[in-house]
Computed example of a mutant assay.
Amino acid sequence: MTSDRWLRRFHPGGDARARLVCFPHAGGSASYWHPLSGLLSPRTEVLAVQYPGRQDRFTETPLRSITELAARAVDALGESDGRPLLLLGHSMGAVVAYEAARLLESSGAGPDLLMVSGRRAPHLRRPEAAHLLDDRALLAHLASLDGTDAGLLADPEIVALALPAVRADYAALTGYQYREREPLRCPVTALVGDDDPVTSPADARGWERYTAAGFDLKVFPGGHFYLNGRHDEIAAVISRHLEALV
């Protein structure tokens, strides 16, 4: 692992030809990306963002700002080392990754590709108030997305530790204000499940307007967490993009 609070490296990547930075979903943690890291290492250095308020950062106050999450992650990433850089974010992480991509482009540090998963394009605003739900309703909402082990949601101690971060993340999404800006100079690939109750393939296609360098949409069988159990397929998509870059 890296020593930085914001980034985790689960597998060796010193001789990798490219870097992939992964941004978790609302309530998620860096470890969500561990399986993907194992599949892509050592040819790709995979760095997973660890937001405050979870796992080894559970004593820290969660942030309630998408742009601040992006800025902190970009600061931790540091200067470009010349290798191709890819960003991948799932659900809330897709929006954080998008804002991170904008910051990186403004500094001339890339990225070479943005991959957004399970999240509608930012201009497709809809009411979001999950952070205002009571504990029971919020847990039911999380269960409906089928991305969290039911045993964890039934454990009072784990729930007590996790809910503050979940609420903060949903509050960050609610408070996020998209404004029209120039499209990214890097390509964008959108990934989505064909039965996602939160983001439809049409919603995911909305990301096409966010790039001036090419757009691709890939639809997989499954719901909001279609990635679970499909890490081989996701790794193959990433690898094909990497081969084109290097």
Score class of each variant (00 low, 15 high):
M1K: 09
M1L: 12
T2Q: 13
D4L: 14
F10P: 03
F10V: 02
A16Q: 05
R19G: 01
V21M: 01
A26N: 03
G27A: 02
G38P: 04
T44K: 00
T44N: 01
E45R: 02
Q55H: 04
F58A: 15
P62F: 00
L63W: 12
I66Y: 07
T67D: 13
E68D: 10
E68K: 11
L69H: 03
L69T: 04
R72T: 07
R72V: 10
A76E: 01
D81Y: 10
P84M: 11
S91W: 01
M92W: 04
E99L: 07
E99P: 05
E99A: 03
R102M: 03
L103P: 01
L114D: 02
S117C: 00
S117V: 05
G118A: 14
R120S: 10
A121K: 00
E128C: 15
L133E: 08
L133Y: 12
D134G: 12
H141L: 13
A143H: 05
S144L: 07
D149V: 06
D149F: 04
A154F: 11
P156L: 12
E157C: 11
E157G: 03
I158E: 08
A162N: 15
L163Q: 01
L163F: 05
A165Y: 02
Y170R: 09
A171S: 05
L173P: 11
Y176H: 13
Q177D: 15
R185A: 15
P187A: 07
V188H: 02
V188Y: 12
T189V: 14
V192E: 02
G193Y: 13
P197T: 08
E208A: 14
T211P: 05
A213H: 02
G214P: 05
D216I: 06
K218Q: 11
P221T: 10
P221R: 07
P221F: 06
G222A: 10
L227C: 00
L227A: 08
I234L: 13
R240G: 14
H241M: 09
H241T: 01
E243A: 15
A244K: 10
L245Q: 03
L245W: 00
